[in-house]
Design a protein around this nucleic acid. Sequence first.
DNA 1: GCCGTTTTCGGCCCGACTGTTTTCAGTCG
Length: 610
Amino acid sequence: MRLLADSRIDGSSVNLKRLGKQTSHDTDWHTTYRNNQAVDNAAIASVFEEMAELLEFKGENPFRIRAYQNGAKAIRELDESVADILADASRKLSDVPGIGKTLVEKTQVLVDTGNLPQLEKLRGEVPEIVIVMARIPGLGAKKAAKIHAELGIESLDDLKRACQEGTVGKLKGFGKKTEDSILEGIAIAKQAGERIYWATGDELAHHISDHMSRCSGIEKMQWAGSYRRGRDTIGDLDLLIVADDRIAAMDHLEAYPDRSQTIGRGDTKISIRVGKAFQVDMRCVEADQFGAALQYFTGSQAHNIHTRKIAKEKGMKINEYGVFRTDDETKVAGETEEDVYAAIGLPWIAPELREDRIEFKAAEQGSLPDLIELSDICGDLHMHTTATDGKGTIRDMADAAIERGMKYIAITDHSQRVSMAMGLTPERLLAQWNSIDEIRPEYEGRLVILKGIECDILEAGGMDLPDDVLAQADWVLASVHYGQKQPRDQITDRILGAVENPHVTCIAHPTGRLLNRRPPYEVDMDAVMKAAKEHGTLMELNANPARLDLNELHLAAAKRMGIPIVISTDAHSTDGMDVMQYGIKQARRGGLTASDVVNTKSWEEFQSIL
DNA sequence: GCCGTTTTCGGCCCGACTGTTTTCAGTCG
């Protein structure tokens, strides 16, 4: 995990509590951008997701549950505020696919009051312990509810005791094996539910691929699932193989050195745990089914439901074995993914787009984006050196950039406010820029080194360095490291201030999230994007695998709004530059092409925007 | 709960594996 350990996350060592000062609020000079809604789309989506989860525990109609899930997805992915739509008499929220009469009413209640009585009621009806128990692998909503109802289990300790005493096994539908698997499951319940960074999953996938490649008789092998789709985090790994001898292939996977458990093994499928709790599934299929299986196991679930619906409308059925005509079961496709999509009248769709968002409409219109690739990148515009918390000198970073095919870079160390990283005062910054001036001739014709800075946006608003200093920079990133927990209005104002500052080129890691560790700032991103569009400020996609900030939905929104994106590594060492690939994955999920990304431009084109 | 060039009612994607069953429910993806 050398790469990840080296690509440090700046700000992660910062003591947030110490600096979370509240400052008096400026006049409301940003109302032109901001939505003043109390409840934003993400919050409404979360409510509907929780409704779906609770309804599932109650054993409700699965299609009603899915309707809540679909409604949540629709609202989460909407690029404008539902509160704004509701407030506009000329618009109808029910025009959004997946939102019907009932969900409109509930959304209205949420926007008006911030609460949903039905959710409160459901929460009261489903005991917390049932939800906790259902997170144990192998236990679902129904079994958890039954254990609670019939045995009065109130804690995981109760459950453990009941299994050890054999009480659980006496329930109808339960037995000794269920008890044993519950006991195993309790031990790993917490870790089993955790998602890992895509980059970590990538490393594991490579290890397992190496291991499996030593098994003879495997003709074909391909990873599927959310890993193939390039999600920012992944919950498990799905491997698909074609093999002469399936039993030997499954035996070989079971012999993987880091396997801790076999969860299940049948004729075509095996599931193991690797390390403490991470699940790896392998499916064996016939060569003429490979494309259908790959399409199916790549998902997403929403994408598959949509493809099958299209197939159905055309008198066909899709499963993991192929595409079949409904009337006489004739197989129409299955060997390749291209065939499967072609059978239902669509071009092949890149896995990163398979989320049932824009891909079906774009495919039908022939306007699927030609997604960006790593080789399109010519510059890296966010990196640190030994002057602050980086491990390489300017020359180290420049040489490493040349090795990676870059034509231009920006040196962007921290500003003085980031004291723990020895942030630069104006004097030290000007001295660094002098050094860059001295080094530049050495790199003439090979690499352009820009004089940059990652300037902090201060807690009280305003920039950490004076305008006359910023004015001398080639490239100014603005970012928040302190006061991350400020209320929505306050932190939004701070960031809007930076967006509007004429010296600021780009907003770095705009939402501040750290996957699995820290939620985004409560910033009104809709307002920030509108302002960025108006002021010509660029937005960063930080490629650090723990950040991937902006997220894919923000990227898609930026593309629609015509806001150029800069994909940057935020490297704190030479190895840190290798994270660019993760940013590219994320950009592809946002539907970005090379022309949507600024640092795909040649130096000649790029310098015209400085 | 959503949706509609067959439908305002009756559909809603599809299958593997496990454990406890003797024909299937629950879980998972």
